[in-house]
Amino acid sequence: MNVKVIVRGRAEGAVLCARHPINFLGGIDKKTGRVRDEKHDLFGKFLGDKILVFPNGVGSSVGAYTIYSLMYNKAAPLAMVCLHADITTASGCAISNIPLVVAERKDYESLRDGQKIVVDALEGKIL
């Protein structure tokens, strides 16, 4: 599938799908890389080494630092696929060199938990 590249790079890994938007600051533990918001559908899940597929980021502007901290703490997703790239997610990924792409809705909805994919955020493709 073709995707819009927001932050360039390339990553290969298993998909982790979130139904809810993510508030990185409140919702994610920056040290462990786990979802700590018990009301979130990914509660308890580890984001590291995954291709994180989620609608968009919400909430605190400091979430960009959470993304940077996840990278620093080796607990960051390998790449992110969004339906809508918000400013917090885009800037957090840009500074952390985490590939970020935006997928069309039908392509986005076809991605499944555990599916192995390649995010080619150089050519703008998911393979």
Partner: peptide, 28 residues
């Protein structure tokens, strides 16, 4: 790119978040 901008424009004032050590941690 994320917001579909056509150009960069001047801004007069920036108000920054990311000041509390509790939120930005050692990395920040």
């Amino acid at each position: 790119k994320a917001t579909g901008a056509d150009k960069l424009i001047p801004v007069e004032w920036a108000h920054l978040s990311g000041v509390n050590y509790n939120t930005i941690g050692d990395a920040g």
